[in-house]
Design a binder for these strands. Sequence first.
DNA 1: GCAAGGTC
Length: 838
Amino acid sequence: MVEIIITEKFSVASDFAKALGVKQKFDGYFKNEQTIITWAVGHLVELWEPEDYDPNLKKWRIETLPVIPERFKYKPISKTYKQFNIIKSLLDNDNIDRVVIATDAGREGEVIARTILLESGFTDKERIFRFWTSQALVPEVVRKNMNELKPLSHYDRLWRAGYYRQVADWLVGMNCTRMVTLRLRISGELFSVGRVQTAVLSLIVDRKRERDRFVPEIYWIIKVLFSNPKGKWTGYWFQDKKIEGSLDSVPDDLKNLHALKKKEDVDRILKKIKQSKSGVVKSIKKENKKEPPPFLFSLTDLQQEANKRFGFSAQITLDIAQTLYQDKKCLSYPRTDSRVLGTQNLDMVKNILSKLELTYQNMFFGVDSTKISLSNKRVFNDAKLTDHHALIPFKPLPPDATYQEHSIFNLVLSRFIAAFYPDCEFENTKVITELEGETFQTNGKVVIVDGWRAVYQEETQDSDKLNLDSKKRKKSSSDSLVSSGKAKHEEIVENIPALAKGDIANCEKIVPEEKKTTAPPDYTDSLILKDMTNPSKYVEEEEIKKLYRGDVGIGTQATRAQIIETLINRKYIERSGKKLIATEKGVFLVDILRKSPLTSVLTSPEETARWEMSLNTIALGEPPSDKNAIEAVTSSHEESNRNAIKNFGQIPATSFLAHIKEFVAKAVNELKLAKFDHVFKPSDLNRPTGKNSKPQELVKQSDKNLKSQEQSKESKKNLKKTNLPKPPLSDNCVCPLCGGNIIEGKKGYGCSNWRAENGNCRFVIWKEIMGKVLTEQHIQTLVSGKTTKLYVLRDAQGNKFKAKLKMVRKDNKNYSIEIIPESRDIIMSNQNVIQCLR
DNA sequence: GCAAGGTC
């Protein structure tokens, strides 16, 4: 018997070759007497372009829209044409007894295989079988599942759902992009529109609006420093009852407790408690809590974490992970949405751990070997497995790795090892102190057992730290994203003295503090990834909310980074440090689309998520078609089935395509007829987008501008080549020694008066301090004498630690950057002080 | 000049 196995990518083909003992490798396939194993490179076949159907469609014209092909056709993708031809010629052989589809176990994997077969002209379904598993492809899994091949028809519905996804995205994208661009007719400006990119853009635009509209509200909190012979503690005034006129923009857990909106209430309370010298400890509640190690990384989780910790964009993280997987072979397949491994992976994990232990011995001291077993369901869980397992390290990082690769690898490594550590155990203490009938709350947290936190520190920069209770903490961090604003309020006290109920509480100090509510944060890569992964909060209906939990998102893990970059390339959003902020162009597009009922659907994450849901229903719930699936999706049968559907609900498979076509035709017509009262001038594109943003450099594609763009690129190049001085940093960033400008040099930021004739000032701050690369913003913070945020630094041995940086004056000619470690365990030595003066 | 989905 001769069989051909087709996988989605080379690495899988190689797994199959190993498992089945097919040793000889040819150009594009492995082969022995009975078995040929070949691979795709993702999609090898794509839908025709509009101009492939009709050359007249090459030129964009309003009159030729909408483009709705009667039958959609495919063609090989030019970049991978060679591999497609290899597969095609392998299939073009009468001796083939069976073809085994072994692409990834999912909707797109199905599309990849079916379109290759379709385009190769291999239509004999009787000879096609499906290899299907979610397990990692260790030899036993490959061999076992090769003996349990499934009939192709079991997956016809999946192929149908994938096909609908493709054509629906094509119809919306091609037609709406062309129509919007043509209707707006702004010289050279492309206004792309798509199911995913437009929904994501809307989120970012809405966030900008929210922030622009936001009016901070003033409120007060009252802190009291208590003491008794046992020690000191700080209590925060609170009241259980709702206060009249409470703040809307303060989260629920704060507004009824600590925040006081009226000054007279503050004065009244202050007057009352000032009379008293001492109060009493009214109650003490202690609770012991356990916290298991975090799940292993999915790609999106890793991207979020790397963005929070290192400021890497989603794309950078994916690129680094891809290199570590593909070239350095020390990470597993990166494009995964799974956070667990399969039970079949246990032996592999044992091998990997023993390999890693030789190199990273210092991270293994607390590993609980009983957790390296199948009873550890947070790691080994077949039920939660999707087509790839979680991201894990395979072997130690080679020594030639870059700093960035080091950062990403270490994250994955420490999360992996932490998964086999014991739980973290801590004690929460809640003290209520009473003073003149007013109540004050103190929260304390004492870690009893570090557990996994000894090797993996959690980053909490993007979420707030308001509550200690993990349930509450989750709630408050998600609330902070949807509420119109929040009150920042630190109430964590690490060490509370060993108080007892009835203890005296001397009132040492009363501190009323005026605060302002803050707007919801700008999106970052991390925050937008989170909302794309889990759009359920944009869904009102409880039933659909439930269905969305985890499964349905906006975009997929493999493309989310790309979507963010597309929005930036289109100048819909711009990056400012870590922030992603909508531009005038982005705001304008969303406004245009929201003017008409159908096109506004595209700006609604709820509607687009619902759309995905319908495709899932088709993949899972529709009765199997007795037709040949390939025929079914390419026949014109559906054309006649024109059930107009008013909204996106549960759409029967048979009318999905008809519905989409109708939707697109109507949406395009809306855009065609729409009257845009606001005439958008090209000059609008160059306007600053808001109070805090810089003017955009939106370059129009006219010849003149292109030229100037080229020129500016050229001049930048020359700048580097000739080492011309760069423009100084901002006006308020001046040399503390002589008042000169701070300019960026090759290795540091220094004083512009460095020449002898200008005073020979030697002030400089090096760009890299213990592994931390400093940007202009950091320099501004340091020069202004402020302390920076907490950063991850590295000592001379390469050990990570967290510290803040601050510039301090040593004498009248010396400044130095002091490194203030987070943990007192790190001893300050002279090494921790970097001189600013050469 | 257009989408989103894979892959490298």
